[in-house]
Amino acid sequence: MESYPPLIPYLVVRDAAAAIDFYKNALGAMEIVRHHMPESTKITHAHLVIGDGSIMLSDDFPEMRGGKASTPEALGGSPVTIHLQMNDVDRFWKRAVEHGVIVTMPLADQFWGDRYGQFQDPFGHKWSVGHTKISLSEDQLKEAARVWFKI
Rank of each mutant, 00 (worst) to 15 (best):
H125I: 00
R115D: 09
K126W: 05
F111S: 09
H131G: 05
V129G: 07
A144P: 01
Q110A: 09
I134H: 00
M105C: 13
S137D: 04
F111E: 06
Q120T: 15
I134W: 00
L107A: 14
V129C: 13
M105N: 11
G100I: 09
L107Y: 12
W127D: 01
D114P: 06
Q120K: 10
G130P: 06
E143L: 05
K126E: 08
Q110P: 01
Q110R: 08
G100S: 06
G100D: 09
H99S: 04
W127A: 04
S137A: 02
T104Q: 04
G130R: 03
S128W: 09
E143Y: 05
I134Q: 03
H131L: 03
D121H: 09
V101M: 09
H125A: 02
D139R: 13
E143G: 04
Q120V: 14
T104Y: 01
F123K: 08
K133Y: 03
S128N: 13
F123M: 06
L136H: 00
I102R: 15
G124D: 14
L107Q: 11
A96E: 03
K133L: 11
I102N: 12
H131T: 15
S137I: 00
I134D: 02
K126S: 14
W93C: 06
L141F: 11
H131V: 04
D139M: 15
A108I: 03
K94W: 05
F123P: 07
F119E: 07
D109G: 13
E98S: 15
S135F: 10
V101D: 04
W112A: 08
I102C: 08
P122R: 06
H131E: 11
R115H: 09
F123E: 04
E138Y: 07
L107K: 12
T104W: 02
S128K: 05
S128P: 05
S128Q: 12
M105S: 14
T132D: 03
G124Y: 13
S137P: 05
F119T: 05
D121C: 12
A96P: 05
A144L: 00
P122G: 08
K142E: 07
K94N: 15
H131A: 13
S135A: 03
V129I: 14
D114E: 07
V129H: 10
A96I: 08
H125Y: 10
